[in-house]
Design a protein around this nucleic acid. Structure first.
Lengths: 146, 146
DNA sequence: TTCATTGCAAAGCGTTTGCAGTCAC
DNA sequence: GTGACTGCAAACGCTTTGCAATGAA
C-alpha cells in the first residue's frame, strides 16, 4: 500500500467516525488530519499550526485543538505526556504499536516494542473484567557510560 | 514497622539526599514531606497546599512546587499525568510498586501489579544498554457491561 | 433553515519567575 | 557571613471559552 492509499484509508476512518457520531465533515478537519500524517515522529500543537499555515491554509489554533480531540477519539492520533511541559502528539494508524524510553538527562526519546505488554493487558482485562482500549508505557532512564 | 518508624525512615531518605546534594535541610521541606505521607492515594498541589495551611503551617505554593521536585528526584514522590489536566502526585516509598488503570468513561483509577513489567524492563535495559530508573504504565479502558 | 463548527481575541489557570528578605550552614 | 531557600505577587504560556459569523446537512 503506497502513501496515497494510506491517506485515503485514514480519511475513510475519519469519515466513518464522523458519520457514526453525527459530526460534520468540515474541510478543516481533513486538512489537519492530512498534515498530521505528513509528520514523522512527535509534534506539538504549535508545530502543527505553523506547518499548516506555511502550506497556505488559514485556520485557527482553536480548530486544531478541537480537531485533534476528535482524532484522538477515533484512534487516529495519540497524545503523550512525556516529561516536557506540554503534551506531544503522534499519528497512530498503520504505525507499529510501540512504547517509549525517555532519557531523563538529555530528553531524548526512543521507541521499542515488546509483545509481553499484550499479555499483561490480557491478564488485566480478565482480572478486572474490563475492555482496555489503549495503553501507554514509559521507561525513564539514562545511558550507561561504559 | 509502625507509622512513626516509617516517617522516621522516610525523613532519613530525604536527609541523606539533601546532604549528598549539598541542599539545605529547611523546615518547610520536612513539613511538606510529612503531610504528603499522610495522604492516601493521589493528590494535586492545591489539595496538599490546603491541607498544610489547615494544619496551621504557613508556606507558599512556590515552596511546594520546589520541594516536590526534590522529592521526585530522590524517589519519595511520583508524578502522574493521567487524563486530568493537571498532574497528580503520590508518595512512593514503602508502597508496593504498582501501575494504573484509568476508566475513560468515569475517570476512576485502579491499581494493579504485574511482575512481567520487570522482565520487560530488564530486556529493554539490555537491548539499549541503559539504566532504567523508573517507569509508568497506564491502561485506558472501560468496564464490561456484563 | 438550523445548529455544529470555525475564528478571533479575551479569559483562565496551573506553574514559573523575579526579587527582596530570611535563615541554614 | 553568604548564598540557598522562601514568600509574595506578577508574569507566563498553553489551552479553553465566549460569541458572532459561517457553512455542512
Amino acid at each position: 500500500m503506497d502513501s496515497i492509499d494510506k491517506k485515503a484509508a485514514i480519511k475513510n476512518v475519519l469519515i466513518r467516525y464522523l458519520d457514526e457520531h453525527r459530526h460534520r465533515k468540515t474541510p478543516e478537519r481533513f486538512v489537519i488530519l492530512d498534515k498530521i500524517y505528513d509528520i514523522e515522529g512527535h509534534f506539538d500543537i504549535e508545530y502543527l499550526y505553523t506547518k499548516i499555515r506555511e502550506d497556505g491554509h488559514t485556520l485557527s489554533r482553536a480548530t486544531i485543538y478541537n480537531s485533534i480531540e476528535v482524532f484522538i477519539n477515533c484512534g487516529l492520533v495519540q497524545k503523550h505526556q512525556f516529561n516536557t511541559k506540554q503534551p506531544l502528539y503522534e499519528k497512530s494508524y498503520f504505525g507499529k504499536q510501540h512504547d517509549h524510553i525517555i532519557f531523563t538527562d538529555t530528553g531524548e526519546i526512543k521507541e521499542f516494542c515488546d509483545p509481553r505488554i499484550q499479555q499483561i493487558k490480557n491478564t488485566v482485562e480478565d482480572i478486572f473484567d474490563i475492555k482496555i482500549e489503549n495503553h501507554s508505557l514509559y521507561f525513564y532512564g539514562v545511558k550507561k557510560n561504559t
